[in-house]
Amino acid sequence: MEVNSWVLWQFDVLILLMVLVCAVVALQLRDLVASAISFGAYSFFMCLLWTLMLAVDVAFTEAAVGAGVSTVLFLGTALHIRRRAKD
């Protein structure tokens, strides 16, 4: 049962690149709701990365807490206040 074989390093690099892209996009968007959604995508890619790195318990906690609860918290705050950010 070789889960972590050499075949998977391309997936690893691809997901790391997607994580970096989502982080930069979440910080650069002016619309706070779009920023919150992009941060949810970032958390989901982090969850995929941790599944690849054999940390399944961290992965499902991140999927529930990171991609789920914190996206809802960000969306709630962003919809409650002024949506546009200056930077």
Binding site: A26, L32, S35, A85, D87
Partner: peptide, 9 residues
């Protein structure tokens, strides 16, 4: 970042 939510992100 200037926006507080961006700081939290």
């Amino acid at each position: 970042k200037n926006n507080l939510i961006k700081k939290v992100i």
